[in-house]
Computed example of a mutant assay.
Amino acid sequence: CSHSVIRIDIELNLVSLTIAGQRKIGVDGNALLAGPRSTYPTTRAWAEKIHTQCPGAHGIYYSSYQYGPDYAVVLFEDRLPAGALSHISSRLVPESPCHDDIRTLAGSLSIEYEDV
């Protein structure tokens, strides 16, 4: 498992799952993203539905509930043409300093983090 920095070399077509985007599809109150871990399967099901019903979408984006107001992006690998992404750098998650950075971030967000 690694943490990578990439550059996006194409214009992406992303489906919005921001609060406004969720409202457009009939979901109120950020329900897809603000729930406990037990709601993750529902969120994944929405992503799968978007993948199926929006064949031109390269992925989804949403306001990070834990780390907002920045956006988080999920890309559909099978939708990205060759050369869409360029690798900038990578570091292995279990090794320092990446693991230490994750632990520090989790602590600052009051998230219980389990060592990998």
Rank of each mutant, 00 (worst) to 15 (best):
T104A: 13
Y65S: 14
H99D: 15
L80A: 11
Q66H: 13
V93R: 12
H99M: 08
D101C: 08
G107Y: 04
L80G: 05
D78Y: 05
D70A: 15
A72K: 15
I50N: 04
W46T: 07
E77M: 12
G59P: 02
G59I: 03
G107F: 02
E95A: 10
H58T: 09
S96Y: 09
P97L: 12
L80M: 14
G107I: 02
H99R: 06
A72P: 10
Y67K: 13
G68M: 12
S96K: 11
P97M: 10
L92W: 12
Y71N: 14
H87L: 13
E95G: 05
K49V: 01
D100H: 05
G68V: 15
V73A: 03
C54P: 00
W46G: 00
A45C: 02
L85H: 09
Y67H: 14
Q53D: 06
L85V: 14
H87R: 07
T104H: 13
P69H: 06
P97Q: 14
Y61R: 10
Y61K: 08
P69Y: 08
Y61G: 04
A84Y: 11
A57H: 00
R91P: 00
L92C: 09
Q53M: 01
A47E: 00
T43A: 02
S64H: 14
D78K: 13
F76K: 12
A72Y: 08
Y71A: 13
A106W: 08
L75T: 05
R44T: 04
G83A: 09
G59D: 03
F76S: 07
S96I: 06
A47L: 00
V93N: 11
E95P: 02
I102D: 03
I50Q: 03
S86R: 05
G56A: 03
R91Y: 12
L75K: 12
A84H: 11
D101W: 14
Y62W: 10
R103S: 09
S89K: 07
Y62D: 05
C98E: 15
L105A: 07
I50P: 01
A57D: 02
S64L: 10
F76A: 07
H87D: 15
D101G: 06
P94F: 02
